[in-house]
């Protein structure tokens, strides 16, 4: 047991949770605004690549995070152009964005860095980690949340800001309204398309940061298809929580926990494929349980 629950296990939870959490927060505002954005996978992937690109050339993690955000915003604008202006189906656009990000990041990896598979370099600067001296003496907290990347703390703060923002801010109110019925917003004199556009930009920003956390927070390298399904886990989390930030946070911590666990039990000699499968199985299991509970409460028979 102690082999699994060692200090490395506890500190990896935050590291593994952060990218999924950031992307899911982006996804959740889209969900609340009635935009069915299931392209989070692509958003994270391009963000991760752009982070490495920026950090490598500017030799600065800050620039890396900035370029990652630019990557996310780029996809947001594409999403907006084809969904809001050309009225395309968001599911199809999401699929296209996932494929686009996969193709683009691999293409650029090979044409700019002239490598395939992995790019790592000592000049990629990593996002600084923060030491909190106050909690150094509280052993468990110290293990869990001390010495994490800035983005981890930022994401926690965003969870609560978003919660209050949606509840008490006028823009938050508009987001909730546009998600339920855009016509209502329109008849109150506010352009629903503009709200949706801003929401998409916000989502791109958060997903870009998620990518940065993935590639330049701990490892400082980019691997082809680096997001590896994390975006889909975020999508499922958003669906399960109906886009509410606090439950989302809790659910994603659960997923992060399983993620860290699977990383640890790999050391115990279980084949890698089986341990890597674990987060998806848990995700699927939670999805099934929640969906089934919901189905039981429906009084209409759908099929």
């Amino acid at each position: 047991m102690t082999e699994i629950f060692d200090p490395e296990f506890f500190s990896s939870i935050a590291r593994l949770t952060t990218p999924i959490l950031l992307a899911a927060l982006g996804g959740s505002i889209c969900h609340r605004a009635g935009i069915f954005n299931i392209g989070l996978e692509g958003f994270i992937l391009l963000g991760a690549f752009m982070a490495v690109l920026g950090s490598f050339y500017a030799n600065s993690a800050f620039v890396g995070a900035l370029t990652a955000v630019v990557g996310g915003l780029f996809l947001s604008i594409i999403f907006a152009e084809f969904h809001l202006r050309r009225k395309g189906d968001p599911i199809v656009i999401s699929i296209a964005i996932n494929i686009l990000a996969l193709g683009l990041s691999t293409y650029l990896l090979r044409s700019i860095f002239k490598v395939s598979g992995v790019f790592s370099h000592s000049e990629i600067e990593k996002i600084p980690h923060i030491q909190l001296p106050i909690i150094e003496n509280v052993k468990i907290l110290n293990l869990l949340i001390n010495d994490q990347s800035i983005l981890f703390y930022l994401s926690i703060v965003i969870v609560f800001i978003l919660h209050y923002f949606l509840k008490y801010h006028k823009f938050g109110l508009w987001i909730r309204v546009v998600g339920e019925n855009p016509e209502v917003l329109k008849s109150s004199g506010i352009n629903p398309v503009r709200i949706k556009f801003l929401v998409l930009l916000l989502c791109g920003l958060l997903c870009g940061l998620a990518g940065a956390q993935l590639s330049i927070s701990n490892v400082g390298l980019f691997v082809e298809n680096m997001s590896a399904g994390r975006g889909w886990i975020a999508v499922v989390a958003v669906l399960l929580c109906g886009g509410r930030p606090i439950p989302l946070f809790l659910l994603i911590i659960l997923f992060g926990l399983v993620d860290s666990l699977s990383l640890r039990i790999q050391g115990l000699g279980l084949p890698q494929q089986i341990t890597e499968l674990l987060p998806y199985i848990v995700c699927l299991a939670v999805l099934i349980i929640v969906s089934y509970k919901k189905l039981r409460t429906f009084s209409r028979i759908i099929y």
Partner: peptide, 21 residues
């Protein structure tokens, strides 16, 4: 030229037809 250019083109094509669907 990295062959992933095909993937990119493919994604962009579907984006341009999606509004018609």
């Amino acid at each position: 030229v990295p062959k992933e250019i095909a993937t990119v083109i493919q994604a962009v094509i579907i984006l341009f037809v999606v509004g018609k669907l």
